[in-house]
Simulated assay, not measured.
Amino acid sequence: MLKKFSLTHFCARLSFLSFFLFIFKASLALYAQNPVTNGNVHSDFTAKLINIEAATNETFRYYTTLHNGSGKPAVFEFKTSLPAGWMISYKIDGSQVTSINMTAGGTRDVSIEVNATANTAPGKYSIPVKAIANKDTLFLNLEAVVKGSYGIALTTPTGKLSEELTSGSHKEIHLEIKNSGTLPLKDIELSSQLPTNWEAAFEPAKITQLEPGKTQAVTANLKVPDKTIAGDYAATFTATNTNSNAQAAFRMVVTTSWISGWIGILVILLAVSLVYYLIRKYGRR
């Protein structure tokens, strides 16, 4: 009877030891999946997209999330290393910052904006971003893929930006649109800002595509209303597409036509002749 009791007691202890080992292994597995520091989940720094492609004159925007898992408040300072001439800014709720005060267990969205230089060669560039708090450093390796640049220029064949017109006349203004970037420009539209009642029609009215380095001639048919007062006027022509725009500001000098001038002279002569006639006829009485 005593021997049976000892075996039962031994089996119970063995079962307890097996259960303890099972709990210990489960704890180790849980720790491996969720590492902890001082009983708290690690902090992390993540991005929705780490690789963005854009032109050199566009902004690379990365939407990131910063989590403070240290179990106590911490101030995270942002630092990075960029190619020469590049610019970076960190924004939280639309405000630019260089660091952020995080509560224990807090999470904040951080927008990172990067601008390359205009002469940056196409290619892939690494942007290592750090969030540093005390002795903890969180790393986020972003990538910017530069694919070229958009550029547009609007001028005239001679570079002249002034014209002389007469009241009530039509005038053809010859313009040139040039793709000054390294990427094609699509759907370029022409528009104008003119004095009141002036009109302008463009030929062509829209350019479907303009390759880098190429130039497109455009004619602006300008109409000046009748009875426009002589003087200097300002007119602005604009070429626009979704990626770029350019303007050309003109000085328009309006003069009266020679016919109007001769009519004015004739009216004056007739008035003088009439006065002279009246004086001759009634002056002796």
Rank of each mutant, 00 (worst) to 15 (best):
K4S: 13
F5N: 01
A12K: 10
S15K: 13
S15T: 06
F16R: 12
L17I: 15
L21E: 08
L28Y: 02
A29G: 02
Y31L: 15
N40C: 03
H42M: 07
F45R: 06
N57W: 00
N57F: 05
F60M: 03
Y62R: 02
Y63D: 11
T65N: 08
A74L: 11
V75I: 14
K79N: 14
T80K: 05
S81Q: 15
L82R: 10
G85L: 09
S89A: 09
K91W: 11
G94S: 05
V97D: 02
S99P: 00
N101S: 15
G106W: 02
R108W: 02
S111L: 13
E113F: 07
N115Y: 05
A116G: 10
A118Q: 15
Y125D: 05
P128L: 03
A133E: 04
T137P: 02
L138R: 00
L140C: 00
A144K: 03
Y150P: 10
G151L: 02
P157R: 12
L161W: 01
H174V: 07
E176T: 14
E176Q: 15
G181D: 04
L183W: 09
D187P: 03
Q193D: 11
Q193C: 03
E199L: 06
A201M: 03
F202R: 04
E203L: 12
I207G: 10
T208S: 14
P212M: 11
P212Y: 07
T215F: 07
T219E: 08
L222Q: 11
L222D: 10
K223H: 07
K227N: 15
I229R: 08
D232N: 12
T236Q: 14
T240E: 12
T240F: 07
Q247M: 04
A249W: 02
F250H: 02
R251N: 10
R251E: 10
V253L: 12
W262A: 13
L270G: 13
S273C: 06
L274F: 09
V275I: 14
I279H: 14
R280S: 11
R285A: 08
R285E: 08
